[in-house]
């Protein structure tokens, strides 16, 4: 398990977090390469299904990054995303995957540093949590059997 490299998907709003990620690049900040970004026009576009399917297919952690509260380009898409992520956290707790594998973050386009810090912290958290049990379980079985 010491070589565990988590697979992390970040759904990033074009207007803030995606731009912040580019900004992190311009500033040559560093964050773990585990994070792969999917660009969306608004964090409110991220469907519960996309988060669930990402985990089901083996992502170890998924986060949605949207604009700061009150800053959504489309009024309140980020608020919707926040509630959606809360709802899924409960569901994921119930099925034993763990709600802490999904998270909602807020940042503005200028926050390259926050993007890098968030990516680093989240990756570290998932690393502590260990692999997505969905992925790990059959492997354990194979090893045992």
């Amino acid at each position: 398990m010491e070589n565990f490299e988590p697979v992390i998907l970040a759904f990033c709003c074009h207007y803030c977090a995606y731009t912040a990620a580019d900004m992190a690049g311009s500033m040559r900040l560093r964050y773990p390469p585990n994070v792969k970004i999917i660009r969306v026009p608004c964090s409110g576009k991220v469907d519960a299904i996309h988060i669930m399917k990402s985990l089901e297919k083996g992502a170890d952690g998924v986060y949605v990054a949207g604009c700061l509260e009150g800053d959504c380009h489309f009024k309140n898409g980020n608020g919707r995303a926040t509630h959606r992520v809360e709802y899924l956290k409960k569901l994921l707790d119930e099925i034993g995957i763990g709600g802490e594998r999904v998270e909602m973050f807020a940042m503005s386009a200028g926050m390259g540093e926050r993007f890098a810090q968030t990516a680093t912290d989240f990756t570290e958290k998932i690393r502590q949590l260990g692999p997505n049990p969905v992925k790990a379980a059959p492997q354990n079985q194979r090893a045992a059997g």
Binding site: L9, I38, V40, P41, C42, G44, K45, V46, D47, A48, I49, H50, K53, S54, K57, A59, H73, F74, G77, R80, R84
Partner: peptide, 29 residues
């Protein structure tokens, strides 16, 4: 305005936001 909130809220999955269709996002995943 193209935010896609309707597409992600729709309980019947009857709305798609062009350029960001569900199958595109699923394909990326």
């Amino acid at each position: 305005h193209g935010c896609g909130v309707c597409a992600s809220e729709c309980p019947a999955k009857a709305i798609q936001l062009r350029q960001y269709e569900d199958d595109h996002i699923m394909a990326k995943i």
